[in-house]
Design a protein around this nucleic acid. Structure first.
Lengths: 138, 138
DNA sequence: GATTATTTATTAGCCAGCTAATCACAGTTT
DNA sequence: AAACTGTGATTAGCTGGCTAATAAATAATC
């Protein structure tokens, strides 16, 4: 069996390539790859509980917890109380966390170009749809 | 900007899904996700130096070194001397490392089905080719 | 009301990536 | 021969993902 002829194999390799590029692009503006996705979620809905962040991001609660530690340490985010439940905390964007969005958007456009540079517009759309199917199935 | 409409975003999410599935399938036969790729490389060419493994796998030397530690500990692989250069070591498959290939192949087929289950044969081929382009560019 | 079960956050610890820094050896240069 | 340069393996330490186990608070049940 020739593993390298399978889509799974290519997918894994491409995943490494992508992660390295993502990390590099985000490092330029003082962020790590995992932090960006948490910020994106908070830009949509600020003040979410950690458990809801984890659920929406499809990540485990400990993973989100660890990432939040970094974001709090870098002052992109703060923890607040959740009114009617002492177990939960609300996560709020700081001004820095709000302001960094513009930079992330710029880097994201460049990332998209780096990763998909050799693909036509049609190919990008096809790839997007295929990935959507994979995510839905997983 | 709606990040979730970009291929990069979907790619990252799909990457997480894939890695989780890969890890789960390989755990069933006592392997970790990273170890499998090193074994695949050794199944092609046994007795490679670590630096060559890293280069062919497109991984950093420390990453390969760490993975080899696990493979040696689980007796899938052994370290040997490199004849004309005392800096290098040759990595050899053990009998266990040779024998496990059949199981990996079976798991790999199932993985492919899990990940790409909702895709037609044509879509899989298209995906494969798009991923190839991405890897080439990165 | 007291006990039990569930949920949320957190800690500990694992593997997979990475970079930076060491150490030992090989090769070159002078 | 000696000094410098380069290369291969390794160590230390980081982020990002995970599971398992705790602790605290809420919810449910008896």
């Amino acid at each position: 069996m020739e593993f390298s002829n399978t889509a799974s194999f290519q997918f894994s390799k491409a995943g490494n390539v992508f992660r390295n590029l993502l990390e590099r692009k985000m490092a330029e503006i003082g962020l790590h790859s995992g932090q960006v996705f948490v910020l994106m979620e908070l830009w949509k809905i600020d003040g979410q509980r950690q458990i809801d962040l984890a659920s929406r991001l499809r990540l485990s609660p400990p993973t989100v917890n660890k990432i939040l530690g970094g974001l709090i340490g870098a002052d992109f985010v703060t923890r607040g109380r959740y009114e009617d439940d002492a177990r939960s905390t609300r996560i709020y964007l700081t001004q820095k966390g709000i302001d960094v969005r513009e930079q992330v958007e710029r880097q994201w456009v460049e990332l998209e170009e780096l990763v998909l540079g050799e693909l036509t517009e049609t190919e990008r759309l096809v790839l997007f749809q295929l990935l959507e199917k994979i995510i839905g199935g997983g």
